[in-house]
């Protein structure tokens, strides 16, 4: 094995990735070979902290999330990646005893302002979870659920369901059995169903919290391809444990780590750096990032 376990693929649209872990990624000589356009920021996060009771899970995170890109959030376990991403659609506040400090602007609007409806926030900023979590309903009803409860009245629900399933690259596999239980699908199909379900409410952002950690490599591959397709229309933030995955799919990568407090009891997540994915994986600006991605830590 080479010293670097990472495989970096610059042409992320290329589905036939063959580079094994033994081949060191080709490091571009000029910093602007892989062009990551500076699209408008969708989220502008400043000094974000999150508390579970008295415990501070993340501290002073400031970063931008740009539109129509995939932003990966990586870092060791317990560094607050999931907590962070759940702040972006106000999922965290469903847990009693939690508190947010700092500010998240979404298209310039304060996401946590008093007059902002968290339900509307969550509709616009959809979420896909670690474990596929379809409802115990039919495939069709799973997709139609969101539009129905959000009072969306599409001209034809059938069309909306089909379109959503198509976008999630699932339609061809399920078109003959949409009335069957979602549990009849494989894990990877269930996860794509969850993506379809998310798309059906027409969000602008899709947050993905380790969407492939329960899936096998083939199913993971399909989801990754799907993500790259979806970024044409959506802004995607993905939390992943899998550095190769971050390297393969994302445009920008944020590296979080956990700082252990003086007493050694509390672990607080902090953002170390955010940069173009390629830069993070080839020439990180911070020593801690380098240690992590080269496997010396974490």
């Amino acid at each position: 094995m080479s010293q670097n376990p990472l495989t970096l693929n610059h042409d992320v649209n290329d589905a036939t990735r063959s580079a094994g872990p033994t081949r060191r990624p080709e490091v571009p000589t000029s910093p602007d070979i892989a062009v990551v356009p500076d699209t408008d920021p969708v989220f502008q996060i400043s000094d974000l902290s999150f508390f579970y009771g008295a415990f501070r899970a993340i501290r002073d995170v400031s970063m931008d999330v740009r539109g129509n890109q995939i932003t990966a959030v990586i870092g060791p376990s317990g560094c607050g990646k999931s907590t962070f991403i759940r702040c972006l659609n106000r999922m965290n506040e469903l847990i009693p005893g939690t508190r947010v400090a700092g500010r998240i602007d979404y298209h310039g609007q304060d996401l946590y302002a008093d007059d902002v409806d968290p339900i509307e926030v969550r509709r616009r900023i959809g979420m896909v979870f670690q474990k596929p979590n379809p409802f115990p309903k039919s495939i069709y009803d799973n997709v139609a659920f969101g539009p129905k409860v959000n009072g969306l009245k599409p001209a034809s629900m059938d069309d909306l369901v089909e379109e959503s399933l198509r976008r999630a690259a699932l339609w061809d596999e399920v078109k003959d059995k949409v009335k069957k239980s979602a549990f009849s699908l494989s894990g990877g199909q269930q996860q794509r169903l969850c993506i379809a379900r998310c798309i059906a409410v027409k969000p602008e952002v899709i947050l993905m919290d380790e969407p492939c950690s329960a899936l096998d490599p083939l199913a993971t591959n399909r989801i990754e391809e799907l993500m790259i397709e979806l970024k044409q229309d959506y802004t995607i933030v993905i939390v992943t444990h899998n550095m190769q995955q971050a390297a393969r799919v994302s445009d920008r990568t944020a590296f979080f780590t956990a700082e252990v407090s003086d007493e050694g009891r509390e672990r607080t997540g902090v953002l170390v750096e955010l940069d173009r994915t390629e830069k993070i994986f080839t020439a990180p600006g911070d020593r801690r990032t380098e240690d992590y991605i080269t496997g010396r830590f974490g």
């Binding site: 979870f129 969101g146 409860v149 959000n150 969850c194 059906a200």
Partner: peptide, 27 residues
């Protein structure tokens, strides 16, 4: 009823009432 189902519904903009009546109760 697993919390994952509630989160799924909340995550697509369901209110507490919808989660209680249309996700949790049927399950």
């Amino acid at each position: 009823v697993p919390n994952a189902l509630r989160e799924a519904a909340f995550g697509m903009g369901a209110s507490r009432r919808v989660v209680a009546l249309r996700v949790v109760m049927p399950a």
